[in-house]
């Protein structure tokens, strides 16, 4: 691990290794947490800002596909659970923007990048929620995949991110169980409900698998992130863990995974899936998925139509501060 890490050291102008950098790597290797005021290599800072901001954006954009069904949820219990879930996501977004801000980038700046379409967020949220079953599927598969990705982040080398993830993971695993229970109810319901669940699985399975990112061979950020202990497992390792956990869950409730090549490999003890359509993944990531334009436009509309509210709050705070100062002066 250390030799691999050494390859990542930034060199000074004269080609010498910055001694602070060696100390930083030694701390990372010793599993110490890096905190906001500590020295960190520019590359580490940039990687983290990018990853945490994308993570925060995913929470915010992720409110939309689920929010789409709040008014139509089929029972008051489901409606309340869905509102609470989307509210949690807003909260996760807040924690994560705060974590990113400790690295020196403002939330406003990140928001602007998001609404101007310059920031990335999880590809999964560019798929539409077409039926109620999609809401359960997002809980079960999407949150399930998110948990696989996020549990190792609880041990990430950057303290504020790791701590945010500990809080977030607790809520996410609750959402995941809730989602699975919702799908279980549909699978055990009327034939129409079961068909609704199967149709949702058919549409969400592959996009969920893609949430783990490109295959290891094509992942540009992987090696450094692993050395810096931002990442603990590779994309493909996490993807396999998710598949192994999820396939039996689907079978248990009588749903079929939409993959004719799916098979259990006795030798390795893993489920083996067919080809992932990486062209689709790249298309969605590049902005050409079914909902990319709608998602960004909706976020932008909220941002723009709320501008007068934020301006009013600011103006009022200034007026109040002036009045308080004047009163204090008069009293003195």
């Amino acid at each position: 691990m250390y030799t691999q890490a050494l390859n990542n050291l930034d060199l000074n102008e004269d080609g010498a290794v910055d001694p602070r950098e060696a100390r930083f790597m030694a701390r990372v290797d010793a599993e110490e947490r890096i905190e906001p005021n500590d020295f960190m290599p520019e590359g580490y800072r940039k990687t983290l800002v990018r990853q945490i901001a994308q993570h925060a954006h995913s929470e915010i954009i992720g409110m939309l596909p689920e929010g789409n069904w709040i008014t139509r949820a089929p029972s008051l219990r489901r409606k309340a659970a869905l509102i609470a879930k989307v509210q949690d996501e807003g909260g996760h977004g807040l924690y994560l923007y705060c974590a990113a801000e400790t690295l020196g980038k403002s939330r406003e700046e990140m928001m602007d990048e998001l609404v101007e379409g310059r920031a990335k967020y999880s590809s999964i949220f560019n798929y539409p929620t077409l039926t109620w079953a999609d809401i359960g599927m997002i809980g079960w598969l999407v949150d399930g995949a998110a948990i696989m990705n996020q549990i190792p982040l609880c041990r990430c080398s950057y303290g504020p991110y790791a701590r945010a993830m500990i809080r977030i993971c607790k809520e996410e695993s609750f959402h995941q169980r809730q989602g699975y229970e919702q799908i279980m109810t549909l699978a055990a319901g009327t034939p129409e409900q079961k068909a609704m669940a199967q149709d949702a699985l058919d549409r969400w399975w592959w996009p969920s698998i893609m949430m783990f990112g490109p295959p290891d061979a094509a992942s540009i950020h992987s090696a450094k992130s692993m050395a810096w202990k931002i990442k603990r497992f590779t994309n493909d390792e996490l993807r396999q863990k998710f598949i192994d956990a999820t396939v039996p869950q689907a079978h248990r409730i009588g749903l079929e995974i939409p993959d004719p090549d799916l098979r259990f490999d006795e030798e390795s003890g893993h489920w083996v899936i067919g080809e992932i359509d990486w062209d689709e993944f790249n298309r969605v990531l590049a902005g050409d998925g079914p909902c990319n334009a709608d998602r960004v436009a909706t976020r932008k509309a909220a941002q723009e139509s709320g501008a007068w509210v934020r301006e009013a709050a600011l103006a009022h705070a200034e007026k109040r501060a002036r009045r308080d100062a004047a009163e204090a002066k008069a009293a003195a």
Binding site: G67, A80, Q87, G90, G91, G93, Y97, A302, G306
Partner: peptide, 29 residues
């Protein structure tokens, strides 16, 4: 109020309005 979720002027209000919506729906139940 739940119609606002995801569309509020700021993240804090998304959370607050969803929170109030939940209180009302809880009372209704």
């Amino acid at each position: 109020l739940s119609e606002w979720t995801g569309h509020a002027p700021m993240l804090e209000e998304d959370i607050a309005l969803a929170n109030i919506a939940l209180d009302h729906i809880g009372a209704a139940r």
